[in-house]
Design a protein around this nucleic acid. Structure first.
Lengths: 87, 87
DNA sequence: ACATTATTTAGACTACCATCTAATTAAAGT
DNA sequence: ACTTTAATTAGATGGTAGTCTAAATAATGT
């Protein structure tokens, strides 16, 4: 898997890890996610695009909103990779 | 654990992950590690200091050499944190 | 003492990253 | 049509990270 680096880059930022934890509890729109952060919507959009590039999250449209969800299969893959890093 | 960020930063670099995988197989001196990489000794020293700051590795002296080893307790901690990120 | 080997530290450079504001796209409601 | 809401994209900026060469530190051997 050649995009391994993109996953490690994605989880290296603390704000993105918070996003992942929030999505772990259920899907959220961008504006719902925004309530949890101080930075601008543009920055949030940037973080989401990094997570999307790593395929850690998926997005779908619902009217004007874009709903983000955890991509559990890639998450499982990450857990495997990290475990194999050491075990 | 307040140094969680330093651990994620440490494993975000691919060269440092190679170092960790090498040390997983047994302790190594800096010059032994150097054989596996193209970059300068100064750069290797920098990577080792990042890993050391995150407490992922430990170092001891043996004559002129410095022997690096995996710090398995912090490694276990990392595995736990990553797992809790998603599960 | 001096030279050699092993490693780190200092300082510089480039590239990338997180962030911002402003502009843009897109869908919905009036 | 126009306005509002939702989100992304463009472009700029400051800071940090990875890398290098050169210099410094430290231990060994001659």
């Amino acid at each position: 898997m050649k995009e391994q680096q993109s996953i490690f880059t994605a989880i290296s930022d603390p704000h993105r890890r918070v996003i992942l934890r929030l999505l772990k509890q259920g899907e959220l729109s961008v504006s719902e996610l925004a309530k949890h952060f101080d930075f601008s919507g543009a920055t949030l959009s940037h973080h989401l695009s990094v997570l999307k590039s790593a395929a850690l999250v998926r997005v779908r449209k619902d009217k004007q909103k874009r709903i983000y969800t955890l991509n559990t299969s890639v998450v499982e893959e990450l857990l495997l990779v990290v475990n194999q890093l050491f075990k």
